[in-house]
Simulated scan of single mutants.
Amino acid sequence: MDGARRSTPRPDVENLADLDAVLSSGRPLRGLRLQDLDLTAYEDRLLARTDVEGLVVLGGRLSPALGAHLGAHHALVFPTDPHAPVDPYRATLYTADELYAGLDRDGYEATPDFLAYQWMKSGVAHRDTFATLLRAIHDDSITDALDEFVAHRPVVGVMGGHDLARGTTAYAAAAGLGRSLAAGGLVVATGGGPGAMEAANLGALARDESSVAVALEELAGVPSFRPSIDAWVGSALTVRAQLPRASTSGSLGIPTWFYGHEPPNVFCDGIGKYFSNAIREDGLLARATAGLVVLEGVAGTVQEIFQAVTPLFYAQPDTPCPPLVLVGQEYWSETVPVWAAVRALGQERGMGAVTHLVETAQEAAEIVLGLASERARQPR
């Protein structure tokens, strides 16, 4: 795990094909990490091995006999909580179908997404140290999975408010932004929630503009996740099932259970959902290597703006920095007057060259894609 540090290759084994290869090779098992694997079919082969000192088994399924054997030969077996609604040791990002399993049968409050939020609240309320540990392990597993999903591809972050309603001109503009950025070869990463985030993920997932237009018309029938999350998710799942998709995976959501009232949107190729909002926000912004586009939003969006400004402010003069583009001149100048502070900081430290205030989402896309194209032409 620990995907933030990849300078030294880690001996992770995250699927059964790799485990088969390792066992067949006869190489020592010392120091390997078996993450989230069902070892039931491999029990006899593993019971025959004693070269397991330092082997780490992270979750998965194994019998008490195998666990005892591994422990007796100085391997480490990390347990999980069978009552936890999510797997702390998972090796991949979530899908919408996983998080919303059971929605059509029993409603949102029976889904893993809602139950994970309740599990988090219960662990905090009862000061459950083991649950706290499992949540931390889960979030590190998600970080690792995000690194593998992105795999050095250029990522643009799109931020914006969760209250932006389907069926509005602004929602359509956010979807168009996502489509333009993804068509330009960028992975579009959002906070993974409703509103502007859902719109950008939808646009990035869709094959073309006409597909987006059809989806927008269908979604407008359920404008918001209030008052009914069930109806909001259900309509989106129906639209997603019919949506012609882009040939490349360009839609990523990074939400958090910290905002329990805010369900994740379904228009993502991968969903990296965290328990810790702080780790989630830092990870999202750090991955926005191709830039950050900020649509209208309130407190959470403002916080993200200044989190993005901080590394730009302290960057060395010769360090290439991704652009930060705020969309909505009157909004960011008058309604929520953030731009004055951003501009003042930019003048002092020279980051003004990469901070922009524009009127439309299309202008923002042109800035980000222009810089991405310029960087792609530069010799490595």
Results as ranks from 00 to 15, higher is better:
1 M>T: 13
13 V>K: 04
26 G>N: 06
31 G>I: 05
41 A>H: 12
46 L>T: 10
49 R>Y: 07
54 G>C: 05
55 L>D: 02
77 V>D: 01
79 P>R: 09
83 H>G: 14
84 A>F: 12
88 P>G: 04
88 P>N: 03
88 P>H: 07
96 A>V: 04
99 L>H: 08
100 Y>D: 02
101 A>C: 12
101 A>M: 07
110 A>M: 07
111 T>L: 01
113 D>G: 02
116 A>E: 01
123 G>M: 03
127 R>D: 14
131 A>M: 02
137 I>S: 07
138 H>G: 06
145 A>M: 08
149 F>G: 05
151 A>S: 12
157 G>S: 11
158 V>L: 03
158 V>I: 11
158 V>Q: 03
163 D>E: 15
164 L>H: 02
165 A>Q: 15
168 T>P: 00
177 L>R: 03
178 G>E: 00
187 V>Q: 00
190 T>S: 03
192 G>R: 02
193 G>K: 02
193 G>T: 04
201 N>H: 01
201 N>V: 08
207 R>G: 01
212 V>D: 02
217 E>G: 08
232 W>M: 00
241 A>C: 05
244 P>H: 08
246 A>K: 08
268 C>F: 02
270 G>T: 13
275 F>W: 10
285 L>K: 08
301 T>G: 02
303 Q>I: 11
310 T>V: 13
311 P>M: 06
316 Q>T: 11
321 C>F: 00
322 P>K: 06
322 P>C: 07
327 V>F: 06
330 E>Q: 15
332 W>M: 00
334 E>L: 13
335 T>V: 14
343 R>P: 05
346 G>N: 03
374 E>L: 11
375 R>D: 00
